[in-house]
Design a protein around this nucleic acid. Structure first.
Length: 159
DNA sequence: GCCAACGTTGGC
DNA sequence: GCCAACGTTGGC
């Protein structure tokens, strides 16, 4: 059974345009340094799962496109790279803490700003809208996935 | 750049 | 195992 996820990408290095431009439209999702998010990647994500790609750390955060999970999780090499901003000197070489997973471009959508997400009743259950939420990966129900796609369809019909 | 919220660390 | 201090996230 396909699951759905919302994944935050910092707009300067993991935007929908970065995904589209990547070889095979696929980026290794590195740099996740939160145990809950790691556990989603390691234990629950499956090849083909649906992904809402959300742009964070930008003037207008929001959903920018659709992607899908590609393959299964593997060791995130950036944890062992002293030159990487994601270097984790405390991660044991023989028992790596952090994993990555492939994320593949599906399509760029109409832009759905966070402010509109908050203002749309059918999206009110999204975990990313909860106060104080900082988790970079959150699960999405099938109903929420449909609701987001409906909103995107409406936005795309308007332009 | 501010700062609320929250996760992690480490002394005890 | 508690919890204060600290660091980070991320919207604004």
């Amino acid at each position: 059974m396909t699951a759905y996820w919302l994944m935050k990408g910092e707009v300067h290095d993991a935007s929908i345009d970065h995904l589209r431009a990547a070889p095979h439209g696929t980026l290794a999702w590195t740099g996740v340094r939160n145990y809950q998010a790691r556990n989603f990647m390691r234990d629950q994500m499956r090849d083909g799962d649906g992904v809402l790609l959300y742009h964070s750390s930008c003037a207008v955060p929001g959903i920018a496109g659709l992607a899908r999970i590609s393959g299964t999780s593997s060791v995130d090499p950036t944890q062992f790279d002293p030159a990487s901003p994601y270097h984790d000197p405390r991660s044991p070489l023989n028992e790596p803490r952090w994993v990555q997973i492939g994320v593949s471009f599906v399509r760029k959508t109409a832009y759905l700003p966070l402010s509109l997400m908050r203002a749309t009743p059918s999206l009110s259950s999204l975990q990313v809208l909860r106060r104080g939420n900082r988790l970079s990966i959150t699960p999405i129900t099938a109903e929420e996935w449909r609701a987001v796609l409906d909103v995107l369809t409406q936005l795309e019909a308007q332009r």
